[in-house]
């Protein structure tokens, strides 16, 4: 059986989470690999969340927010964009494959986009195989 990746999704309440809801309402089908946590704004996301996600065994982390300029809180996702760009650099520096971390701006009306991103990202992470770089196993290593 091929490797089935486990992906952590973090989505903002107003755009990406609602977009994901729309994908559901319109009955789009996408792989079950992404498990989504809801935060109010992508700016709530601390880089440590991403790293923690990998430590907890996520094979990939997907972050979703409103399109830049469309943030429910005005400027939140602009801060998020910068913070996540730095997060990517930290991950690169630590040797994490760049393909395991993805940031997408998906609006509340883009249910199909959400489904598409999940499909693409799941396949991408699948080809990268299990993530072992950051993962902390139960026995301490």
């Amino acid at each position: 059986m091929s490797f089935d990746p486990k992906i952590l999704g973090i989505a903002c309440n107003w755009c990406t989470y609602t977009g994901a809801d729309l994908a559901g309402t319109t009955r789009m089908k996408y792989p079950p690999n992404v498990r989504v946590i809801r935060v109010m704004c992508s700016s709530r996301i601390n880089p440590s969340f991403i790293i923690r996600g990998f430590q907890l065994g996520a094979d990939g982390v997907l972050v979703g927010g409103c399109h830049p300029g469309d943030c429910h809180y005005g400027t939140g996702n602009l801060y998020a964009r910068r913070k996540l760009a730095i997060t990517r650099k930290i991950l690169d520096f630590a040797g994490m494959e760049p393909g395991r971390f993805r940031v997408e701006w998906i609006s509340a009306s883009e249910g199909n986009r959400f489904a598409e991103v999940v499909r693409e990202f799941t396949e991408q992470v699948r080809t990268l195989g299990p993530q072992t770089k950051f993962k902390i196993t139960k026995n301490g290593q």
Binding site: D4, K6, L8, V39, R44, F49, L56
Partner: peptide, 19 residues
């Protein structure tokens, strides 16, 4: 309601379960 420990705990719960 979206505190670090709450979010991290949810993550742990989500990631603990195998695919």
């Amino acid at each position: 309601h979206f505190a670090n420990d709450q979010i991290m705990a949810e993550m742990e719960g989500l990631m603990e379960m195998e695919m």
